[in-house]
């Protein structure tokens, strides 16, 4: 596979959420607003990229019998680092994400890419694969966060868009369902539907 494909494919044909269906839990939980969605997306991208790189560098030294534990140690070290940095530099966001930062450890995308890719590929390719998958995950998170915050709370990044447009005065109401996790699942379903109708080869027979 060409290196460029490693970055490009996760955006569409091999998107971690739409096609691999990994990392859906966090994608439902943190996308009620745009800001936590973006921070979560960045955090996961950093963690999956670095974890892929580190595990790939270690891959020939890792005894297969304890490889999952080794992967977990690498991932959790990185996650704790991310958590500490968030607490120091963007305290409010880290409070909002609370448990979800810790849950990056169990984000299936991270473990999935480590097992499927980094354990058997060279470091540079693994780095790109991690970056691609992290960004592919980010795109979906940001789209969801955008739609859910705009229609659920009438704001974007905290800025009251709907109010400024004067929609409330003509009887517009926020959609309360948008801020509930089930709506994120419905939206992901709609995106998958649209995505599959564009990419017929992904449909099962």
């Amino acid at each position: 596979m060409k290196n460029f494909d490693l970055i490009k494919l996760p955006f569409s044909k091999n998107n971690p959420i739409l096609v691999q269906v990994l990392g859906v839990c966090s994608c439902l939980a943190v996308t009620a607003q745009l800001k936590p969605a973006v921070v979560m997306a960045l955090s996961v991208t950093v963690v999956v990229t670095l974890a892929n790189l580190i595990v790939s560098l270690l891959r020939n030294t890792i005894p297969p019998r304890i490889r999952i534990i080794v992967q977990l140690v690498v991932v959790s070290t990185l996650v704790v680092l991310v958590d500490q940095v968030l607490k120091a530099y963007v305290y409010d966001v880290s409070k909002q994400l609370s448990v979800f930062v810790g849950l990056i450890i169990t984000n299936c995308i991270v473990m999935g890419r480590l097992e499927a890719f980094a354990m058997v590929q060279k470091p540079w390719a693994s780095f790109l694969d991690g970056l691609g998958n992290g960004l592919g995950y980010s795109v979906i998170l940001i789209v969801l966060g955008f739609v859910r915050e705009l229609f659920g709370s009438g704001t974007l990044w905290g800025y009251p868009v709907m109010e400024k447009l004067g929609l409330y005065s003509i009887g517009y109401e926020n959609n309360g369902l948008m801020i509930m996790p089930p709506m994120a699942l419905i939206l992901v379903g709609l995106i998958i539907w649209a995505h599959r109708s564009k990419n017929k080869d992904l449909c099962e027979q």
């Binding site: 890792i62 005894p63 019998r65 304890i66 534990i69 080794v70 140690v73 070290t77 704790v80 680092l81």
Partner: peptide, 17 residues
Amino acid sequence: YIFIYSAVLVVVAALIL
């Protein structure tokens, strides 16, 4: 090897943290 490997890994991770 496995014992030494995991011990070293954990100590390195702890140091960084």
